[in-house]
C-alpha cells in the first residue's frame, strides 16, 4: 500500500498543510517507511473483535441545561491575529 506523490499531495491538501514540490519526495519516502512498518498489524487476527474507541469504561455523564459560560467576547477575541470590532476577520470567503 505504497503512497504515490499524488496521494501525498491529496493528504496535505486535506490537512491544509502547504507542501512545496521539493518536499513531496522526502515526505513520500518517510511516510512509506512508517506505513510499511505499521503494516505488521495485518498479522493480527481481529475477527469478531469489537473496536476500542477509548480507555474509559464508563457511560457518559450529562450536564444540566444551564447557561453558565460565555459572555466574555473580549477574552474570546483577545488572541485573534485579526479582528474587526467584535468579529474575527479572515480573507474573504466565496461560498
Amino acid at each position: 500500500m505504497a503512497l504515490d506523490p499524488a496521494t501525498v499531495r491529496r493528504i496535505a491538501t486535506l490537512a491544509r498543510i502547504r507542501v512545496e514540490d521539493a518536499e513531496v519526495d522526502k515526505l513520500q519516502g518517510e511516510l512509506n517507511v512508517i506505513f510499511g512498518w505499521i503494516e505488521q498489524l495485518n498479522e493480527v487476527d481481529v475477527t469478531g473483535v469489537a473496536p476500542l474507541t477509548g480507555a474509559s469504561h464508563m457511560a457518559m455523564k450529562m450536564r444540566e441545561d444551564v447557561v453558565n459560560d460565555g459572555g466574555y467576547p473580549e477574552r474570546i477575541l483577545f488572541n485573534a491575529p485579526d479582528r474587526a470590532g467584535e468579529f474575527f476577520a479572515v480573507p474573504k470567503v466565496v461560498e
Binding site: V67, G70, G71, I76, G85
Partner: peptide, 27 residues
C-alpha cells in the same frame, strides 16, 4: 430548543451581539 449549547454552557438565544454567546469550548 435549549438554554445552553450542545457541549457548552454558552447561551443559544437568537440575535445577541457578536461573539457574546461563545465559550472557550465553542471557540
Amino acid at each position: 430548543v435549549s438554554k445552553a449549547k450542545l457541549f457548552s454552557g454558552a447561551a443559544t438565544a437568537f440575535g445577541a451581539e457578536p461573539n457574546t454567546q461563545v465559550s472557550y469550548v465553542d471557540a
